[in-house]
Design a binder for these strands. Structure first.
Lengths: 347, 347
DNA sequence: GCCTGGCACTCTGCGGGCACGCGTGCCAGA
DNA sequence: TCTGGCACGCGTGCCCGCAGAGTGCCAGGC
């Protein structure tokens, strides 16, 4: 797949990628030798370019234009990266400052997506920490009306899920309190995966007055946590960036990218597939969606105490500055990790 | 401002608006008489058109093109509307079905924005019910770590606000429970505007072990509810629609609209200003933002039990079908009202 | 006095034709 | 194996001319 390339040819490929990313125009042999003093003449470069084209790493849009990288070309470039150029230190500091001191998890993730999109000028994607390995802190029941109770599930990552329970028969306030105690005594600090069954067990052994309520809670816990675990919460920021920067010509393309970004389920799926690597880079047609054939995703995991963590990433055009973007994504991931640790407390 | 227009001229203006909205192309005198059998010749229509142009209600992009409405022209058209054409009944039914049975407030509002955007094919804006006249149901305190407590505020509209409290000194679990009881005894069912002061009063009269905690809760209640009341939560759906439909030509325009849509504060401000009327229509330059000069906002209030309600609306191009959009927005507002009443229970 | 038919005018969009620039591919020679 | 030179292909910008659409205006009719 990646044939060991002649050293000079690899250099030429990298030069093409970098020039094209900067300028957005097909790059020709003459400009290449001028800017990268390669020590050879344009003619030599041309024959190398022909070889690179043969290998499928570059193309030209029409005969008399310069070359542009193909997805495979970008891939080769990215795989050859050794060091991602780090952020400027004042940027890194500003980043930490911005994330630290968020009042709650949602706000933290929102800020993260905002800062990442401004840093990269692409659309930022932030997935909330997954629950599957986290623990249930507390289940609160609030008696709103005779037959309706609000269940609030609090997880140790700071995440809060709420769910209305509608009961067939009225329930008394003190029974709600009994149920609350029974449930919390049994389920608090359990891994969320076990919580539904434990609550169901409590229901089975409970007196008749409270059993329907506890059963309803068990169902809510099962559904609420399951949906929270499967369909992780996604924060998208800066999608307007995709319309700027001159990356796309036709409105149609932009529209389909925006539409895709609105489909949270789809975006999550894309991120999930990408994250077989970490950090992950998925370029153009490597993405599972044809609508995103002109886009790339760069993503990295972050970890959270007690959970399996989440993902931060960006969606940008294939013609992106990969080293810079990788650096930004990784920096944001690690800052988020720190801010998250601070937020959930030492515990 | 709106000079009493000759009846035929008004008819011609309306015809121009409707033709232009449908077709998107400047409309000429000939087509007009053919499609709207006006009973006069094109030449007559032309002289009327000249008068309408003189009055600032229409323009033409260049000499030999047909006419298009100006913002003032749309305004005249909208003000002259008597009946908004109602939704088809199966659409209305589907609407109600979709909104009923949402598990919680957030999900309901999310669905509302989704359905409204699909109904109109514009960007949907949904503002959560405001809290200022609602009541506090319950304050839950969860002891996460010795010096950190999570405060969860539950409001009778079903809205939940959460806030981390970091204390200077450790606090014991049973003191957290004491504080919780004291606070809820005093503050439950109070209007949210009074809650902060009441909680502060509880703090003043509390024993020293729990006073710092209750003071922290008071501060959190003050800040949490204030920010929730001022910066209402906004749900935006279907913004990708703004890139389709051929309304905008240049990518620049689309980008600035998207950027504006991402600024929740700005959008909220626009909606707030618009809602001096109900239902409200703000056309092009009537909006307070130059970036939205090519857009219109159609919005309507909905009310919530115990609160002052919220807003639903759409942002679309000035070239929109106002009667249809008005009907859709109003239908969604009233369905949302019903679904909300069902969600928060009879109470 | 208002409406109508006719006519001249203006502007856009489209297709053809031409020169230009750019970048390539190839080849002979070092 | 690299290099300089040369011919080729192709897209771009420009000008031109032409058809089409729509207007403005004016003289004439009801």
């Amino acid at each position: 797949m990646a044939p060991a390339l002649d050293e000079r040819r690899a250099a030429i490929l990298n030069a093409i990628v970098q020039d094209y990313v900067r300028g957005g125009e097909p790059v020709g042999s003459k400009r290449l030798v001028e800017e990268w003093n390669l020590g050879v003449s344009p003619a030599t470069v041309r024959s190398d370019m022909a070889a690179l084209e043969e290998a499928g790493l570059i193309t030209h849009p029409h005969t008399s234009a310069g070359r542009i990288p193909t997805d495979a070309g970008y891939r080769h470039f990215v795989d050859g990266l050794t060091a991602t150029e780090p952020l400027r230190s004042e940027q890194a500091a500003a980043l930490e400052n911005l994330l630290m001191g968020s009042p709650d998890l949602e706000e933290l993730l929102r800020r993260t997506s905002s800062v990442l999109s401004r840093l990269t000028r692409f659309a930022a994607l932030v997935v909330a920490p997954r629950l599957d390995r986290s623990r249930l802190r507390h289940i609160e029941l609030v008696h709103l009306a005779p037959t309706s109770v609000l269940a609030v599930l609090i997880v140790d990552t700071g995440r809060v899920e709420k769910r209305m329970l509608e009961l067939d028969a009225p329930v008394a306030e003190h029974d709600v309190q009994r149920a609350r105690h029974a449930i919390n005594d049994a389920a608090a600090n359990l891994p969320v995966a076990q919580a539904p069954d434990v609550v169901a067990g409590v229901a089975a052994g409970a007196p008749a007055e409270v059993r329907p309520l506890i059963e309803a809670v068990a169902a809510a816990v099962r559904k609420g946590l399951a949906s929270a675990m499967a369909g992780d919460q996604l924060f998208v920021g800066g999608s307007a960036n995709m319309a700027g920067g001159g990356y796309f010509e036709r409105l149609e393309q932009v529209k389909s990218v925006f539409e895709t970004l609105e489909e949270q389920v789809v975006v999550l799926q894309v991120l999930r597939e990408a994250l077989e690597d970490d950090p992950a880079v998925r370029i153009g047609t490597e993405l599972p969606l044809v609508e995103l054939a002109a886009c790339s995703v760069v993503a990295a995991r972050y970890s959270a105490t007690g959970g399996s963590g989440g993902t931060v990433g960006v969606l940008g055009p294939t013609r992106m500055d990969y080293p810079r973007t990788l650096a930004a994504v990784q920096a944001v991931a690690s800052s988020l990790e720190k801010a998250l640790a601070e937020l959930t407390g030492a515990s």
